[in-house]
Design a protein around this nucleic acid. Sequence first.
DNA 1: ACTGAAAACTAACTAATGTTCGTTACCCTT
DNA 2: AAGGGTAACGAACATTAGTTAGTTTTCAGT
Lengths: 194, 194
Amino acid sequence: MVKTKKLSKRELILTEAAKLFKDRGYGGTSMRDLAGQVGMEAASMYNHIKAKDEILASICFRISGLYISQLGEISATEASYGDKIKALIRLHIRLMVEDGPAVSVANHDWKYLPEPKLGEFKQARKTYEKGFAALIEAGIAAGEFQPVNVSVALFTILSAVRWIELWFRPGRELSAEELEANIITVLLNGLERK
Amino acid sequence: MVKTKKLSKRELILTEAAKLFKDRGYGGTSMRDLAGQVGMEAASMYNHIKAKDEILASICFRISGLYISQLGEISATEASYGDKIKALIRLHIRLMVEDGPAVSVANHDWKYLPEPKLGEFKQARKTYEKGFAALIEAGIAAGEFQPVNVSVALFTILSAVRWIELWFRPGRELSAEELEANIITVLLNGLERK
DNA sequence: ACTGAAAACTAACTAATGTTCGTTACCCTT
DNA sequence: AAGGGTAACGAACATTAGTTAGTTTTCAGT
């Protein structure tokens, strides 16, 4: 089991890096900080990773890949558009709760990717947003949703779930399931009673 | 007019700093970068500001002060709770459109404030959120809103408007007024038709 | 025109950054 | 027991960071 050990050390670095990047930002995290958290010297980490920005890229693209593949699966189901949107909202919340630091990094620090990777990541994001928007548009065309501007609806939904990381502490006052139910209520039914 | 000139140079620095901080982040912006944008040498800026983090603090507290004072005014009116929430949403959108870079910095880079200031800023934010939440809670108690979790509603609304900066380009396809109307529709009435 | 302050400049300092180098310890296979 | 590759290390590299010191320029008020 040679590969296993190698990968697990590397993934330890990636995991700890995501936590630190989330807290202090990419630029605010030094390789020595990260090494201290991992439990080795900064130089030693270069046996497992190629460069600091490769760490960032690994985190970002793992998350974007997850989102895009899940979007494909959900789109392909036979559910109503409302249920598809709900499933996507649940996906975002679940990933945020389970993989919080990495999602946070992919949302905030992607802009520090060096240029070949930066363009690829932007494109991946655009791909995801286009797929999400297509569902909203189809839902409006089917009379299932209100005839609202598609971009506004898309980003209102996306942003509403991206900020969960900032205040949600699982088990404190609110469970993940209650969180899902409440957010879906607000976004799909609106705040006002009718 | 001695004071006027002094203030305008300082404010030029603050304005350009907000733009750079928004694009490259606080840590990703060097004093030499900023000086180049302002049109002077890095050392020269220290005739107008005390330190780099003082720039960050000025930007953050100016924005937080704006939000808190406006919240006070809106809370004191005699409108319905729905109209108060709408007014707050419009406030967020207007500030984002008119003062975009500074709002963006106050939303993303506040965590790099050094420790005495950091605590103050956190408290200011909490003050604002408490005031906002009180309006939602009162609206629910009055039967005007759905009995949803107050924190969830609060942060869903707050986050929905914070991301405008990322994709909204005024005059392109959508005006600020249409933006307001659409966001309010989604948040207050929900996406689904009923 | 003179003066004194405000504000610009050049140069430099210290600290910290990402990364590389050469070497050493470890450990699995033979 | 020996060999060889993996992964750890300490030291050092060049670069860049924020900031300060000292000096010169600009310019409004007398």
